[in-house]
């Protein structure tokens, strides 16, 4: 028996909006730790890993570890039927072939339930090694989204370069080139407006911009984004969900030949 009650139901809605265009079908795993997902895009260039810890739920009952295969685009459609302040409860029976979504309005005057059929999905879990990154950049997530959107009008790739000067985002295309430099800035009124750069060594990596742009669909989940970079390794683009969990995107770099 699985029963998960999420008072801030909009979190689940935002998570699905963030991943539905990147991944088609995926298994949601439920265990004592929480509600999680790990999946790759169809080209195996990007990987998404998300977790909503059990503490994020008002009520969390998961009698045994369960993996539920779902089509994410359909799940996003179901979640779009919930109101912005609805409480969302997920329910599944042991050995059942469906997942029920229950939406309760905050004043309990409307209750809706949607049942989705589960799918069998072959998926391989990848082990993500612990890495000491050469550079870690924390910045406002809206600023990062804006930069990626602006650069995608010019080119198809993004070079992210961290030096003592700051973090530089560059692209190049038929019409020309663009460079945007953000410097460390901690003298802000609100901590979420800060840009913090921790650098062990300078690092430059190049990525396909359309993936990074797709990751920024997670912007509504967090005011800050963290980029972790090391030479010749996938970048990690992480949005922390308050004390409740995270969504991390890993993107394989473009490699010079």
């Amino acid at each position: 028996m699985l029963e998960l009650r999420l008072v801030q139901g909009s979190l689940l809605k935002k998570l699905l909006e963030a991943i539905k265009d990147l991944v088609t079908d995926a298994n949601f795993d439920c265990s004592a730790t929480g509600f999680s997902l790990q999946a790759m895009d169809s080209s195996h260039v990007a990987l998404v890993s998300l977790l909503l810890r059990s503490e994020a739920f008002e009520h969390y009952r998961c009698d045994r570890n369960i993996s539920m295969g779902l089509n994410l685009s359909n799940m996003a459609k179901v979640l779009r039927c919930s109101g912005p302040d609805d409480i969302i409860t997920l329910k599944a029976d042991d050995g059942g072939d469906s997942l029920t979504f229950m939406f309760e309005s905050p004043n309990q005057d409307k209750i809706a339930d949607f049942e989705m059929k589960l799918m069998d999905i072959d998926s391989e879990h990848l082990g993500i090694p612990d890495t000491e990154y050469q550079a870690i950049v924390r910045m406002p997530s809206a600023e990062f989204a804006r930069i990626c959107k602006d650069l995608s009008g010019i080119g198809d790739t993004i070079a992210i370069s961290v030096t003592k000067e700051g973090v530089k985002f560059s692209t190049r295309g038929d019409i020309g080139s663009a460079n945007i430099v953000c410097r460390q800035n901690t003298s802000v009124d609100k901590p979420e407006d800060a840009t913090i750069i921790e650098m062990e060594e300078p690092v430059t990596l190049t990525f396909a911009l359309r993936y990074i742009n797709s990751f920024t669909k997670a912007t509504p989940l967090s005011n800050q984004v963290t980029l972790s970079l090391s030479s010749d390794l996938p970048v990690v683009v992480e949005y922390k969900i308050a004390e409740m969990g995270y969504i991390r995107f890993y993107l394989a770099p473009k490699i010079d030949e």
Binding site: M40, H44, L47, H125, P234, Y250, A252, P253, K254, I255
Partner: peptide, 14 residues
Amino acid sequence: GSRQSRITSFFTKK
């Protein structure tokens, strides 16, 4: 030129 690497060449199956 540059080539797109795959995530599976960095992270291995559990």
